[in-house]
Amino acid sequence: MKIGNSHDGSVSPPKAERATSRKSEATATTGNIQHPAKSAPAASAQVAISSAAKLAAAGTGSDDGSFDAAKVQRISQAISEGKFTVNASAIADKLVANAQELLNARANKH
């Protein structure tokens, strides 16, 4: 007896054909029935506001929240002239400080 052949001489279709056959049977069974839209799950996310964000929202930081259009114009002009430099060290320091604050906040929760 060969593998894949049954004792009655019939051969089962390959796996891919069986899956396709099942899909078409399911389609034929359901037809064009419209299924109702699933409702959105209830909100379950919790948000924690960092101390820096709280300071910014309270307006107690060094920035008064006003928009400095002249500063934006100066930076834009420096970028277009190729004179704008990025202080990578300051960015890295701030990134590390923010990560440390996040890790401390998580450690305090547990």
Score class of each variant (00 low, 15 high):
M1S: 15
K2L: 12
K2P: 14
I3M: 06
I3P: 04
I3A: 14
N5Q: 12
S6F: 14
S6P: 00
D8I: 06
D8M: 04
V11D: 04
V11Y: 07
S12C: 05
P13H: 08
P14T: 06
E17T: 11
E17A: 11
R18E: 11
R18Q: 15
R18P: 00
R18D: 02
S21W: 01
S21F: 03
S21V: 02
R22C: 03
R22K: 14
R22Q: 12
S24H: 00
S24G: 02
E25W: 01
A26Y: 01
A26N: 03
A28N: 04
A28P: 00
T30N: 06
N32Q: 08
Q34P: 00
Q34M: 10
P36Q: 09
A37R: 11
K38Q: 11
K38N: 08
A40K: 15
P41F: 04
A45P: 00
A45V: 10
Q46K: 15
A48I: 09
I49W: 09
I49N: 04
I49H: 05
S50F: 03
A53R: 08
K54F: 00
L55G: 13
L55T: 05
L55H: 04
A56W: 03
A57D: 11
A58R: 05
G59N: 05
T60A: 07
T60Q: 12
T60N: 09
T60C: 02
T60M: 10
T60K: 11
S62V: 10
D63L: 08
D63T: 06
D64I: 01
D64P: 05
G65P: 03
F67Y: 13
F67V: 12
D68R: 07
A69P: 02
A70V: 12
K71T: 07
K71E: 12
Q73H: 13
Q73I: 05
Q73T: 13
I75R: 13
I75V: 14
I75Y: 10
S76D: 13
S76A: 14
S76C: 07
S76I: 01
A78M: 13
A78R: 13
I79E: 10
I79Q: 14
S80M: 14
E81Y: 04
E81F: 03
T85F: 02
V86S: 05
N87I: 04
A88Y: 05
A88T: 13
A88P: 00
S89W: 02
A90P: 02
A90E: 15
A90W: 02
I91L: 15
I91S: 03
I91H: 07
A92V: 08
D93C: 01
D93L: 07
K94A: 15
V96F: 08
V96H: 06
A97F: 01
A99T: 13
A99H: 08
E101F: 00
E101N: 15
E101I: 01
L103D: 08
A105H: 10
A105L: 05
A105V: 01
R106P: 00
A107M: 06
N108P: 03
N108C: 01
N108I: 09
K109C: 00
K109L: 12
H110C: 03
H110L: 15
